[in-house]
Design a protein around this nucleic acid. Sequence first.
DNA 1: CGTTGCGCTGGACACGTGTCCAGATTAGAA
DNA 2: TTCTAATCTGGACACGTGTCCAGCGCAACG
Lengths: 190, 190
Amino acid sequence: MSSATSTRQAETVERLFAAGLEELREVGHEALTIRSVAARAGVSSATAYTYLASRSHLFAELFWRHLTEAPGPATGGSRAERVQEAVRGLTTRIAEEPALAAAVTPALLGSDADVARLRLRIGAEFAARFEAALGDGAEEAVREALLLAFSGALLQAGMGLMTYDEMADRLAPVVAVIVRERRIEPVEME
Amino acid sequence: MSSATSTRQAETVERLFAAGLEELREVGHEALTIRSVAARAGVSSATAYTYLASRSHLFAELFWRHLTEAPGPATGGSRAERVQEAVRGLTTRIAEEPALAAAVTPALLGSDADVARLRLRIGAEFAARFEAALGDGAEEAVREALLLAFSGALLQAGMGLMTYDEMADRLAPVVAVIVRERRIEPVEME
DNA sequence: CGTTGCGCTGGACACGTGTCCAGATTAGAA
DNA sequence: TTCTAATCTGGACACGTGTCCAGCGCAACG
């Protein structure tokens, strides 16, 4: 029966992802190999490759799962407060699994179809959270700036220029600059 | 004599970098191999590896060279105009070699010592240009926001979410939001 | 005109990636 | 219980990475 077989398959996949996360925590993403994950999951490498398109796909999927298990953003407070809250929520969540965060940045640059799919989903998730926090009527450029700054912070952290723990603190004033309400007339000095 | 021998070495290195750039343009970074670059440079792969620590190092070095050959930022106009100009200058320069841009994003995430060195230099170059454009007395958070948004744009382009040609257009309104002079009293609505 | 030494060569190595497939296992249907 | 089909296995494959090293060749120096 299809539900039974798909149960078997689903269990194998779950075992692989669980093993992948453990392996990632223990040896880091540079030392992780698909074969070591397969061994940890008690499965042959050929089987691993039927479910994991690539190392990058594994990382992207783990990241996506980790991300979507995060609590949704709070809804109270001012606009700026909600956005700060959304950013802090995301960074905190990401900082919980530093090895995963370090793995996913290069992984998402891959060109697999599976990676491309997850990349879009992850980007959309970020965008949706900022959108929700900003509320209606937010300038397009503000949304974009927020997303780009957040992506940039992830990149810098991925490069080791800051730790994932520092991200929240570095991002807070940046977010304040971007999201601060302003009168329409910009004042050019000099 | 050391200047003679170092001339020979310097020529080999130059040949390798030139071959690397040609190869990159012709086959793209995914298909480029160190050995194919070596062959194009008319050099053995062992020799290539004495000068190139890794594929990533090659890309980072090529990017750095490309970047620093760019004309310096203009100095005229208002603050916002100078910053826009600086951003446009960088994006234009980067967009000139799309294959290189695509290659460098993943490359800079590597953990080689040589890559780490170049990563810092490249980051410092971006920062210096924004710094110069902003002038003295710019809020720290504004500089940081600019750098993060720019990095974010590079990342998104590297992921294929926008082309390098689109970068300038997408970035302009974002930069405007970040760099716009504002009165000190933020106005919170709602 | 040797001799010295630096830079280059060729080719082997260990290792990881991702692919493939014939055959063993397993679970559920008849 | 026996059959059937989905799953999984073991192991080979082609390929790229980056390392290593014994030895070759050439240019400059004595």
